[in-house]
Design a protein around this nucleic acid. Structure first.
Lengths: 106, 106
DNA sequence: GGCATTTATTCTATATTGTAGAGTATATAA
DNA sequence: TTATATACTCTACAATATAGAATAAATGCC
């Protein structure tokens, strides 16, 4: 495992938080609107799924396919959740940033 | 200006904070040890300067060449400081992360 | 049934950011 | 005039971020 596996990229950080926030409702399209609603960042679908793939490859998240629902366009969703590795990456990233921000004044 | 110019990468974020922290003493080699001391991240010289170059190209920092000092190896240092664009990128990045972290419990 | 519409994910290609380490420059020390 | 220390530049490559077309699978409606 290379050093890079220790740190979260900026967008990876955001995506993991979106998953935590959505809990049992954490699937791609929903994350996208959540991120857009919260920080007005208009992320493309491709950008989001590519990031989710990478996070899964690194074992920071795991996913499972849900069931189709009785709605127009209600095809099966792919749900994501954090692994313990993902959670520790998140706390480490936050902690590092907090340390860097400590006592910064301007 | 593309959308990317609005956001800071994870390492860019850290480097800008190192510059703010060091103030009048913000030059490459020093940033490196500061980052290593604070968050135990062993960043290579190449990685750091490449990032500084990019930040300057994006007008997030500006640099000036200092004078040589009377010490062994005391060649002139290149000092960096944040521009107002860099400061606003930093506050925006922090603010977005804070919003994403809000009410996260686990 | 069959086509339009809606929600959702996958695929493909490219730009930007992160990373390492050798190489170069320029000081003082010996 | 060579050794050693600090500091920066250059080059190459890996990982992350980004966009949007393509595809899939559901319901609505004629």
């Amino acid at each position: 495992m290379s050093r890079k596996d220790i740190y979260l990229g900026e967008f990876e950080h955001i995506v993991l938080l979106a998953i935590l926030r959505l809990g049992a409702d954490a699937y791609g399209m929903r994350m996208r609107t959540t991120i857009n609603d919260l920080i007005h960042r208009d992320v493309s679908i491709g950008a989001l799924y590519a990031t989710l793939e990478r996070l899964e490859k690194k074992k920071f998240v795991k996913s499972r396919l849900g069931e189709a629902t009785a709605e127009r366009g209600g095809r099966a969703k792919r749900y994501f959740e954090l692994t313990s590795l993902g959670k520790s990456a998140l706390t480490r990233t936050r902690s590092n940033l907090e340390t860097m921000w400590r006592d910064i004044s301007w």
